[in-house]
Every structure is written in structure tokens, then in C-alpha cells.
Design a protein around this nucleic acid. Structure first.
Lengths: 158, 158
DNA sequence: GCATAACCGACCGCTTCAGTAGGATTTAGA
DNA sequence: TCTAAATCCTACTGAAGCGGTCGGTTATGC
């Protein structure tokens, strides 16, 4: 499995928030019930999302969570990264501050790291798919399929 | 991390086999020494590759492993899948026999699985990167990047 | 002041990961 | 024929992460 249920649950949570029309905050328990997910586990996940600045919270009675930005401006790479940590295909991969991809055992033998080409391509494919998908798309996708006829085509990000 | 070191080590192992010019089998200990990887761990990995039909083995003295097919005909999706198991972004994803992608909680609520769009795109990106890369490419990549003649001769073991 | 809800940290059973250990079987060559 | 080299196989282990629970604290609307 590429991702754990943290990403799955977290994205579902975000979609649920994005689905809400008004500006009133939604309580976690409402989300948990709607998505049939354990409330106490969601607490951990939403904490990550909050620390990443993706959702805002209001405490106390009638409090809850809402999106920090419009759903169309939230790309899924930020969401998944907040939940799962840095998206790298391999342990030795880490993003340099300047955006370049590094491999920790670059050239540590008598030849360059032959696997770097592969993992770079994989990472490119994943980040492209994630950053090319907005939360608004997912809300729309789930929403239209909800009432009425079934959307069969899923399509791939270009 | 998307993949564990199983994929990393296994790919390195395959590259090492592909690097060898002759048709003589290479012992695992030679590979382990060249790549500085634990021999007994490589045994587990190469077993998976063998069961997947990617390498062949000859037992006994002067035995070892070699590629079951030319490196140009080996795509990395087969290699990684042999090592890591089925490549799916999420637990609920599984390939149907007819090649279609299924989600186990398709439509389990009052709306379709909103995350399916996202995971489908991610899976597409990953499989595209993996199946679009051949072992020969990696061998070539590591080879040219190597500083010419300092290429280690994975000769007969010590 | 009470119910509601966000917050926080500790804990737990389970599985996987990465690696080790010890042996058995097969084979080439002296 | 004996031996060293190699594959092959099973079992085990420490560490870490996953999925989830629990109890408690703080903040807030009614």
C-alpha cells in the first residue's frame, strides 16, 4: 500500500468539510458519523491538518472545523503530505530547500545511484497526480455521483 | 515513504545482474559486496524475484543468479510488484481480473467514494512511471554516470 | 453552570520491516 | 570422494508504525 488510512480518512474529512455549503463550522462528531469513522482517531488526523494550516477550528459549544481556504485552492499534495509526512518514494530521498531531489547515497560507491532515475520518475508521477487534483474536484466528483445517475468515468490526471 | 528498502535493494540487485556482460551467473555474495547490502537479507528478496520469474538460479559451486530475460524487456513495475506486493495507493483498492480498478467501499454511503478519483490518478502516475522504465535504462543510467573505468568488476567471489 | 466540543498525551495490540541465525541441499572441482 | 561454495528454507527478533482507545483539560454558547 502506498498510503495508509490516515490519508484516506483525512481526505474524506476534508471532502466532508468542502461539501458543506455554509460558513458554519462542522463538529468532528458529525463528520465521524457521516463517514462512519472513529471520532477519536479523526481527532489525531484533524490536528495534523490544522497544524498544516488547511483547516481552522473554533472551540466550545457549536464549534467545529472549516476549511482555511476555498476548496478550489487546496491541492491534494498539501493534504496528503500533512497527513502522511513528506511524500518520497524511498528513505534516501529528501527534498532540498531549493526544491531539488537528493539521494543520500548519491555516488557512494564506484557508480552513481542507479535507482535514482526510477524513484525520481515515480515521485514525479505521484506529485503530479496529487498537486493536479484540488479538493473542489473531489467534492464535485463525490457530490454529483451522490444524487442520481452514476458517474462511471474516472479519468486520469494529465 | 512510498516504498520500503525491499524495493530499493531488490532493484539494486537487478541492476547489478543487468550490469554483468557475460552469461555466467553471479553469486549473491558478490552482489552483496558490490552494493554493500546484507547477504542474508538479499536472499529473501531474490527469492521473491525468482518466484516472479524475473531471475533464474543455478545451485552449487560457481552458481548464482542471472536475469531471466534481457534487461530491455524487464519493466520495473514487475520488479517492484514482485518485491512489495500489489501496487495500490490504498487498502480499499484492488485490481480486478479484467484490469479494472475497484474500490471496496464503492458507494457505501449516501454518496460515491469521493477519494477514488484521487487514488486512481495517483495509481496511474505510479504505474506509468514504473512500467515506462526498463531495467536496461537503469543499467545504462548508472553505468554512464559512473566514473568510467572505476566500475567494480563483480568478479568471482573471494 | 452545564452541555458541547476542541485539544492533548498516554497507552495498546497488531503487523510489517530489516535483519540474523542455522541449517539443508546441490554442485564443481581437487 | 571429499570439500568448499553456493542456493534454498524456516524460524526468530528488535524496532517502528498503524489503527484505535481512553481519560482528562480547556474553551464557549445557552
Amino acid at each position: 500500500m502506498l498510503f495508509s488510512t490516515k490519508a484516506e480518512y483525512g481526505v474524506r474529512l476534508m471532502v466532508e468539510l468542502g461539501r458543506q455549503p455554509g460558513s458554519a463550522p462542522i463538529s468532528l462528531s458529525a463528520v465521524a458519523e457521516a463517514e462512519r469513522l472513529p471520532l477519536s482517531y479523526l481527532e489525531h488526523l484533524v490536528a495534523k491538518l490544522r497544524k498544516a494550516g488547511l483547516v481552522t477550528s473554533t472551540r466550545g459549544a457549536h464549534g467545529g472545523y472549516r476549511l482555511a481556504k476555498p476548496a478550489a485552492e487546496i491541492t491534494m499534495d498539501a493534504v496528503v503530505e500533512a497527513l502522511e509526512g513528506q511524500i518520497a518514494p524511498m528513505e534516501c530521498f529528501h527534498d532540498a530547500p531549493d526544491g531539488k531531489v537528493l539521494c543520500s547515497h548519491e555516488d557512494d560507491g564506484d557508480h552513481a545511484c542507479a535507482t535514482k532515475l526510477l524513484w525520481t520518475r515515480v515521485q514525479g508521477g505521484v506529485t503530479k497526480a496529487l498537486s493536479g487534483t484540488t479538493l473542489a474536484e473531489l467534492v464535485e466528483f463525490g457530490g454529483t455521483a451522490a444524487h442520481g445517475e452514476r458517474r462511471a468515468t474516472v479519468g486520469t490526471a494529465a
